[in-house]
């Protein structure tokens, strides 16, 4: 199944998604890394985040006159945001998280509770991502946090491909794979010992 999610994304829409689906996002997407999560949780959001896509990303941007242009914007490692994400989802209700590498148990539970999915965008594919970004709508906390950590608000069209890696029914591709890998590792360890 391959579909385009348009923001604001409804709860029912993400609850219908299954781990392994490939989706694209069109509409509004905002970035938040470690510091931005902390600041938004402490001070509240400067605009409504419900139904939007949250992107774990520190972009490379260039200013031409008064306009910001996004040069590269791939995902950063999501695991670092595990500290904040469950609380963040409950408080702000973004419906789609875009990142890489997956997140932990607490986030997986929060996805089910709140009604959201975690999607995987190809790590490092910053140029591919930038191509889907039509423009920068706003930027927050830029002076305080610097370019990579600021909250950037992008207008996007068919941003993806995004693999639904953790769905709202508690299934995680990462957890599934972990079991397969652990089984393979038993054989690999035996081969090393036996060699």
């Amino acid at each position: 199944m391959e579909k385009v999610l348009k923001t604001p994304i409804a709860e029912e829409e993400v609850r219908a998604l299954k781990a392994g689906d490939v989706v694209y996002v069109s509409g509004t997407l905002f970035t938040a890394r470690d510091e931005a999560h902390r600041v938004l949780l402490e001070r509240g959001a400067p605009f409504p985040l419900e139904g939007l896509a949250l992107f774990h990303c520190g972009p490379v941007v260039k200013k031409a006159g008064e306009t910001w242009r996004v040069v590269a914007a791939g995902p950063t490692t999501s695991a670092r945001m595990e500290l904040f994400e469950a609380e963040f989802l409950e408080k702000f209700k973004p419906r789609v998280i875009i990142g890489k590498g997956g997140m932990g148990e607490r986030t997986l539970n929060a996805l089910s509770e709140v009604g959201a999915v975690y999607t995987h965008f190809t790590g490092g594919a910053g140029a591919l991502a930038a191509q889907a970004i039509r423009g920068v709508k706003e930027v927050h906390f830029l002076e305080e946090l610097g370019i990579p950590e600021a909250v950037w608000v992008f207008e996007v069209e068919r941003f993806g491909p995004l693999v639904v890696a953790m769905d709202a029914s508690g299934r995680s591709l990462y957890a599934d794979l972990e079991k397969t890998v652990e089984k393979n590792m038993d054989q690999i360890r035996a081969r090393i010992q036996g060699a």
Binding site: C57, G58, P59, V60, V71, A72, A73, G74, T76, G124, A125, G126, A127, L128, A129, A130, Q131
Partner: peptide
């Protein structure tokens, strides 16, 4: 895309 547009391959340069 990065090569053709002379843009960074990854945002983390």
């Amino acid at each position: 895309i990065a090569k053709a547009g002379q843009v960074p391959i990854c945002q983390d340069t």
